[in-house]
Amino acid sequence: MKSLIQYLGKSTIDLLREMGQIMLLFFEALFWLFRPPFRIRHFFKQVEFIGVNSLFVVMLTSLFTGMVLALQTYYAFRMFSAETLVGATVALSMTRELGPVITGLMVTGRAGSAICAEIGTMRVTEQVDALTVMAVNPVQYLVLPRVLAGFIVLPLLTVISDVMGILGGYLVGVKILGIHGGLFMNKIYEFVEVGDVYNGLVKASVFGVILTLVGCYKGFYTGGGAEGVGRSTTQAVVMSSVLILVSDYILTALMF
């Protein structure tokens, strides 16, 4: 019993310490945001890596999410003849919730892990120390461009995710299940407000910061060679995913 309490206490303290360190890294990156040199090229390189290269996988997963949503809600709504509401349901779910979350999770898997592996490898091969020795701040050089790119790119990806999800819903609902196309779209206009989309994009920005920051943090504090890099990368993906879902709940509770 005592050891259980000890274990819980230790885990809690470790978790809090880690969160604190992540926040410190965040503030340090923020500090460098307003100080030259501004690394515009690095930033755009990261936008390409985090954003452009994730485009296809985000589009694909969002399309199928929209399709399955339409399929599931159609069978439920048919029981009380509300099939025309399928479009609105899909659109609301996508814009408020699934668009940002799916984008966040997919980009975590694709780019968050890669960020962690890259910075982690640089750490264990002393490239991070080499930066420091050459009087270049590694947070400013490595962390800031990635976090900033995540912050800006995730909402953009989410817009595409929203559109693809609704498109998927339309394909299944209208083309396969035979809901009237005009009604389908009309209900979307009726129920979905700009605020829904907007709040979803705010979430996406937060997710973008979380997944890049956690990737950078885990990479930055990697030790123990190739094995350590692998372990950190796994931890980065798990931690980002959990934090995305937890913060999603908190943001939803605050915004809607």
Binding site: M122, T125, E126, Q127, D129, A130, V133, N137
Partner: peptide
């Protein structure tokens, strides 16, 4: 602090064990 250290470090060059080239 890190920023004042940066100016001291410009007096230095360092060759790392595995060279630590940016790959």
């Amino acid at each position: 602090k890190e920023r004042s250290l940066a100016s001291v470090r410009r007096k230095f060059g360092m060759l790392f064990q595995e060279a630590a080239l940016f790959d």
